[in-house]
Design a protein around this nucleic acid. Structure first.
Lengths: 346, 346
DNA sequence: TTGTAGGCGTTATCAG
DNA sequence: CTGATAACGCCTACAA
């Protein structure tokens, strides 16, 4: 009896308790509460059972249901960092979509570590969720890649649904973001506005998203007949953008027309760095990013960016996962350039 | 091989499979993998079991464990909106803390609806998580309040740990944010900088967080001997801040020295509205908010705000929940004013 | 329509 | 140290 510290610790009421209170068998109680598809229960009993359940504050033990039925009514999402607007927007989409399908959303944070990501997916498998959506930034050559793939494959093999976001994979349905295309469009748009000399702030090349955006932009520049820009590698964060820009401006006035960063938070850091160096973003140097996170338009100057419908991406990932047999296992999400005052015509 | 539509659906390997492969009993396999506290297993068997598990890609069925052990290694967090930096910062804290304690974090989004929140907590109870942290903005007089309380109480009665964030409750441990104190300090700081006439943009009075901040600010003003400011009620969002400010500035140049909003995202909207009306935030009107979300310092002018260690709040909530018998059931989190260029001395 | 019994995967107990 | 076996809470044939 003595459960220790926590004292009397009445156990949570079970279906048995409800059944007893209502004076029926567990089977009937179960059917009364869940409405069996084949059997039907006398109305009077139903109300009696429901009343008993109410009175006892009964909640079915999901794990018990899960074990009886095979899987948990759960949808798991893996992201790199929930406090990053890129991921929190995707997450919000996944979460509402999950809830719309009566699935309990679960969020794991891999903290940008492939090893952690692998460990998470392993643990997740034990949860037996109906869906696993992986939105972390794929990192090439981390060694853990095939292992992660295997793990997901094993999960899929027993009926789980896997969806990757952004990081296209041959083996799983994917919501693919056209990062390269976005980069290309951005290059062309900026060139039309009269920009010629660029600095590109990218993250480590092994980060796929960054590389695709960067390469797309370079390709666009080439297509427009522009010379190769300066490419600076830094971290994929606000601080990375800040520091790289500081260094760029160390020698004096900007030697480039515009700084293009591979995401918006880097661009925000870059704008601050430009100001701290005594210049004005937009006027002295153009600035552009990727993602179109919430307050791009509230910055001063408002930030030019490659828009990605992140919330929608989350929703689509969920729909793709739940769709019956995706004939079209890859959804390509188009991107679009939004020109704002951080890159005025010049 | 053909996994077909839903086809052969090999079931996931169970502990039985592992045991059979290793040529031991399930009991031994279980002990070998989880290291029972009382029994110990021959090393040779251990390695054999581990090898078999590896080979089969075995993952323990968490629901089965849960049902055998009583609860899930899970920590649930309820927020209003994960895409709001206030909540995503708290969430990031909760999530890392949960993972540090080997708990699987689960996030539910109540979408600012008390009814939804209640429904979520009910569902959550069925999950049998070890912890439920409620961080949604408490709304007074929604009618669902006592019901929510009851639901949480029932959960607590069977050994669950409940922690509330911000919304102080007599019945549950709370991480209380000193919103009123922050408002008071902000008033005093702004008055010292020479501000006299204020407009306060608050959200609906029934939203506790907003009301406390607003009232604290008013109290601070009174203590400083200032006249009552203009109080405008609007939505608790960026757009709410924008619209209210637009209206305020409709008649021409600002009639107040500063606009104080009850959170940063409203302040961001306000700054844009000020610009759109042809004025300059900071120079023509001061602007200040609450929270100190990530890019307050990257705005131009940088935003004066009442800082709240949101990530830390999340971590503390988790620690509070897991602490052995909290003698001190309420942790008060102090707030501090950060003066920046959006409120220069005048 | 209702109840009984067996099983889901794991852990804990209790004999060997 | 190891192996049966009984729970754990629920669902679902199957029998009544």
């Amino acid at each position: 009896m003595e459960a220790g510290r926590r004292g009397k610790q009445k156990a949570a009421p079970t279906l048995h308790d409800v059944a007893r209170q209502a004076g029926v068998s567990v089977a009937t109680a179960s059917r009364a509460l869940n409405g069996s598809s084949t059997r039907t229960v006398r109305p009077e009993y139903i109300s009696r059972v429901v009343a008993a359940a109410e009175r006892l504050g009964y909640q079915p033990h999901l794990s018990a249901q899960a074990i009886a039925l095979g899987s948990t009514p759960t949808a798991a999402l893996v992201v790199s960092d929930i406090d990053d607007p890129y991921f929190s927007s995707i997450a919000s989409g996944v979460i509402v979509a999950a809830q719309a399908h009566a699935l309990i959303p679960t969020v794991a944070v891999a903290d940008r570590s492939p090893a952690r990501e692998l460990q998470i997916v392993r643990t997740l498998r034990g949860q037996r969720p109906r869906v696993i959506i992986v939105a972390g930034s794929r990192i090439d050559g981390a060694g853990t890649d095939t292992t992660l793939d295997d793990e997901l494959q094993a999960y899929q093999a027993v009926g789980g649904r896997v969806v990757m976001v952004s990081q296209e994979s041959l083996r799983f349905p994917t919501v693919a973001i056209d990062n390269a295309g976005g980069g290309r469009q951005l290059a062309s748009a900026l060139v039309s506005r009269g920009y010629r000399r660029f600095a590109v702030l990218s993250a480590a090349r092994k980060i796929r998203t960054s590389r695709d955006r960067c390469d797309g932009f370079l390709a666009g520049l080439r297509e427009a007949g522009m010379p190769e820009p300066l490419v600076v590698e830094t971290r994929f964060t606000r601080d990375g953008g800040y520091e790289a820009t500081r260094r760029l401006l160390d020698g004096g006035p900007p030697t480039v027309d515009a700084i293009v960063t591979v995401n918006d938070v880097m661009a925000i850091g870059a704008m601050t760095a430009i100001r701290d160096a005594g210049f004005t973003p937009g006027r002295d140097v153009g600035v552009a990013g990727f993602d179109d996170i919430s307050w791009c338009a509230d910055l001063d100057p408002a930030l030019t960016t490659v828009a990605i419908p992140l919330h929608q991406v989350g929703v689509m990932a969920m729909e793709l996962a739940l769709g019956d047999d995706p004939q079209q296992p890859v959804i390509r999400v188009p991107t679009s350039v939004i020109l704002r005052d951080s890159t005025p015509s010049r």
